[in-house]
Design a protein around this nucleic acid. Sequence first.
DNA 1: TGTACATCAGTGAACGCGCGTTCACTGATGTAC
DNA 2: TGTACATCAGTGAACGCGCGTTCACTGATGTAC
Lengths: 212, 212
Amino acid sequence: MATSSTAARTRNPRGEGGRLRDEIVGAAQQLLDETGDARALSLRSIARRAGISAPSIYAHFTDLPAIMLELVLRAFDDLEETLRAATESTPGGPVPRLNAVCAAYLRFAQDYPERYRTLFGGQWRPTTDGSVTEQDLATLGLASLQILSDALTDCVAADLSDADPETDAWGLWLGLHGVAHQKAVSRVFPAPDDIADRMIPMLARLRPAAAD
Amino acid sequence: MATSSTAARTRNPRGEGGRLRDEIVGAAQQLLDETGDARALSLRSIARRAGISAPSIYAHFTDLPAIMLELVLRAFDDLEETLRAATESTPGGPVPRLNAVCAAYLRFAQDYPERYRTLFGGQWRPTTDGSVTEQDLATLGLASLQILSDALTDCVAADLSDADPETDAWGLWLGLHGVAHQKAVSRVFPAPDDIADRMIPMLARLRPAAAD
DNA sequence: TGTACATCAGTGAACGCGCGTTCACTGATGTAC
DNA sequence: TGTACATCAGTGAACGCGCGTTCACTGATGTAC
């Protein structure tokens, strides 16, 4: 975990100026996670956090949306890796594995609420005039959705679910997203604590016997 | 539906200066709906839209969050009224009524996406230092939740659902919220078109025979 | 009925701020000869 | 091995902009006498 270095920076050695690109995105992510407010991100605030002057950013990004795009790409990778790790590290069969993936999803949203919001429709959204289309971004979440779909497929193969994995993965994800988003957005969450645990078996069409 | 009057305003008659309060909130709502971007709302932009000078706002609101609060209160009332109208105007028994309420909810989010986002955790969120606590706002949605809960209760009473209305209304709402929010946020929606219709019977624990 | 005055519903100019963006520049370091 | 030069990784000052907020004001209209 990177420290919040407002301290003086030593410039990168020759030929390695590209490193600053990573540092800029890292600074943006720090600001996002720490302030919990996408409005706190500006070219100048990111530059301050990265310990560089504002104009230095232009050598690496054309504008703020370009930085946000890079941040979003990385965050989607993080999410995917988190879900994959949960799948691979959970023993006990398809249903515990499915539950572990769902729990990991919700934990990701709770640990990095503003990042989660940025991924799924927070303040930043791709501009139609830029090089990134909405279609591109719609594709981004699909890898994570596929993990859910695979988990469902395993449950069906083991005769523990009546789901149509392709379709019901969407339902499961949208349900998780509702919970995750609401938790990410308000600290007060009046719904029952175990509400996700109640929704998951329904949306996954788990057979009564299959529930833990 | 109010027209977008940037035209010259005639001042309110004596003793009726309070009317401007309504006009300010109306202007803010227009901007929100038309731009689809909460960032477009500033004291100055709202004043421009309302056809007044920026300082005139201070006679009616202390700051921008105060305007947003009023807007949110109204929008929650709108939503509640929309759901209630759907309940009352739908014949055919508890299940069609439940479906009508859910459809009305999703339509509200689709018709006024940025307003929906503002209600449920868009850019604007209550400040902890202000007079409005998060607890207050958490209470706001409860009237709409109650309508869902009542619809579930009717289904259970008619032996068409196995839900625990109090609890499962939360699950149903969070599922609807996931769909509504995702649709409000991105014009590209790769999930099956009928995904909500698939989720609702599950989350409402409708008995197989009860589904239309 | 006339008139002085208080009140009300706003306005217009001005301020300091952070922002995105431009421009000319600096100074360390590798490279050609 | 020495030196001139090109390149690279940035910097600092300056611009115009929209913003929130303040201040002193204006001009119509109701009210007291």
